[in-house]
Write a protein that binds this DNA or RNA. Sequence first.
DNA 1: GATGAATGAGCCTTCATTCAT
DNA 2: TATGAATGAAGGCTCATTCAT
Lengths: 221, 221, 221, 221
Amino acid sequence: MVDPHTGRWQRKKDARPNEILDAALTLFVEKGYNATKMEDIARAAGVTKGTPYLYFENKADIFKEVVRETIVARFNEMQLLLAGFEGCSAELLGLALDRWWQDIGSTRSAGLCKLMMAEATNFPELTQFYYDEVIRPARQLIGDIVRRGIARGEFRDGNVEYAVDTLTAPMLMIMILDHSFALVPGCCETISRDPHAFLKTALDLMLGGLQQPVSVKAPHD
Amino acid sequence: MVDPHTGRWQRKKDARPNEILDAALTLFVEKGYNATKMEDIARAAGVTKGTPYLYFENKADIFKEVVRETIVARFNEMQLLLAGFEGCSAELLGLALDRWWQDIGSTRSAGLCKLMMAEATNFPELTQFYYDEVIRPARQLIGDIVRRGIARGEFRDGNVEYAVDTLTAPMLMIMILDHSFALVPGCCETISRDPHAFLKTALDLMLGGLQQPVSVKAPHD
Amino acid sequence: MVDPHTGRWQRKKDARPNEILDAALTLFVEKGYNATKMEDIARAAGVTKGTPYLYFENKADIFKEVVRETIVARFNEMQLLLAGFEGCSAELLGLALDRWWQDIGSTRSAGLCKLMMAEATNFPELTQFYYDEVIRPARQLIGDIVRRGIARGEFRDGNVEYAVDTLTAPMLMIMILDHSFALVPGCCETISRDPHAFLKTALDLMLGGLQQPVSVKAPHD
Amino acid sequence: MVDPHTGRWQRKKDARPNEILDAALTLFVEKGYNATKMEDIARAAGVTKGTPYLYFENKADIFKEVVRETIVARFNEMQLLLAGFEGCSAELLGLALDRWWQDIGSTRSAGLCKLMMAEATNFPELTQFYYDEVIRPARQLIGDIVRRGIARGEFRDGNVEYAVDTLTAPMLMIMILDHSFALVPGCCETISRDPHAFLKTALDLMLGGLQQPVSVKAPHD
DNA sequence: GATGAATGAGCCTTCATTCAT
DNA sequence: TATGAATGAAGGCTCATTCAT
């Protein structure tokens, strides 16, 4: 955004708030909301203690802004997934989760999701916003694929909402664990070793089932 | 201090620790570990600031004790309950998750799980404790069932750890969401409407798979 | 002291305060005034928290009583030194310091002296008492010996008070250091290795002087 | 906060640390380490509770800095001053003790020495610091002079460490007594009347010995 | 706009002392 | 006498926030 009066220099001025938000994002993800000190944010943004208060009400305000700005951006990227895919629904599901992992799960944003869970009750309006802008659409996205699969006879019929939650759970879990227990020295033996492989395996299991295929019963048919 | 109800002087050493732990559990679940102040706990337990320190080392000690008395104790009971099970592994798995839900997931304890995820990185020692006392044993429990199923030819062979994570994810997710988004007025449309039914459906899906069993159809095609 | 009514049992009753004082003495010497907790004293005396308050006003009162009881007793022992000694004054001085070391310097009482210095300003009346009952008489004792030496032509004439302080300083120093720095792990390289030898050497030095005897000049006379 | 004297707003970053250290020194000497509260220091320095923490890590850090700025600095100066001395060792020793008295013994710093003895066992880390930074160098300083005297044939040979302790004892004693008994109204009759004269006399005695030089007399008898 | 010195409320923990039993 | 559960004032330290410059 170029200011008509001052020209390009205006750009730098407007960049200040974003630099602060970016620094805040990194720190929030890395250390959590409480452990992130205002001064850390300021320093990481290359300004001094008082400056963030010129642009934001307080720490809570910064947190809200960070979530709003970042998540929306990330989520818009994920929307691209929906582009008219032609193949079978299982493949489409795999593709969706794959992109999800690539664009969000494996990025700083995953830390933000975890943080959102952690702080949800402390920021009700923000939580509401996050729910409306991210969670509901995301569930819609996956739900559409499931419905597509059912409609095309690829998937078994059933409660779509529950299926969505089930399919989504491993991703959520990994995003949360990777930013909680997995960061503590003695607790790393969990999933985190190869998240991508885990997600693939989890999807296979959810698609094909843990039990031996009932095809052994086929002779009786 | 005279108790307004009984009119008798209160000197109940034996009851105190449990009253304190109970107050602590409620507050921890409601406000998180860090946001729960020692004085809050004391007041909620009907005593003054110093009293909790007569029974517990410090705040972390109280937290550990709360976890031990609720989650750890429940898992130990589950352990015993499932030990002598004779039926098929799918049924055993269902039983395990069912008890898990009844004894932990649907109780205040679930809030502790969520709390632990939320604050793990800020309190490494507690995280380590929780990992050793809760997470590892719980994963062991489910892992043993999966291995049993594979050994008995009931389950398909594969990476057990990943299977455990997948099977566990819906439970984790529900415990977390129930104590974050679900507590915020506008965000209750999620799973939480019938968690038990969801868990059952999720298990079915994970056991049987979302896809139509291809091998059965093959002959008919 | 036997109570006329109850007989010997009264004896045990009266012993209680002394048991408390004895426990307090040990702890004060070992850990200092502040670091000694009332409960420690009670426990060491084999009673419970509240009991010391049946016999003493408060902690300060116990401290004062400990100093009064212990020091007076110790000092009375030291008075025996004065018994008509016939030998030379240097020997008498050595004897005096030797007993001082044996009866006080190397016992718990030395810790009390150190404590008295440390807490002097916090207990003015006690300090006054200690000064009148212990310090002044002790200085008198040493001063008398010095005066005796001068009168008999054994010691050089001079300011007796200063001589007393000088002769006394090593003893004081060792009592203090032994109960301060010498108790801290990394600071033990000091005197404490052989206090008795040090005191003997110090006395020799003070009697004979550090400088080479002027007798080398004799030829010039 | 408006300064009542200057009427100007107080923002004097450069002066703050020294004001705080000065306030701390006074309070430490007056009340001891433990009894001096951080807020007392702050108030005495004309600032509020949190301000000292802008300049110092914690209470121990303030104490160390006070010791460095006063005692350690003075000893370093003494070191330099005495390095190039050419005269006889007895004179050098007198010079050293004289400076010691002028720069430390007669100043507020002496109170720190007394404090350190009094509270050594309660604050091991500070004690270690003080031992390394003050005691060891000071003993080295005096020890070097003694060794010089012996090497030049001026002093009698003997245990240097013991000699150092003996020579040092009067100074230590005076510093301690001046900040304990001497501060209590009825106990001032001691040394303190003319410390400088006492130290001089004590040194004379320690150099020349209390006893009449026997070797000189021998021929006359 | 920016700075950064200063504030002061708040938290965990300790412990001398009290008092109903 | 004796107990010991309970109290509550205090103290070291942190950090979000303010505001004169």
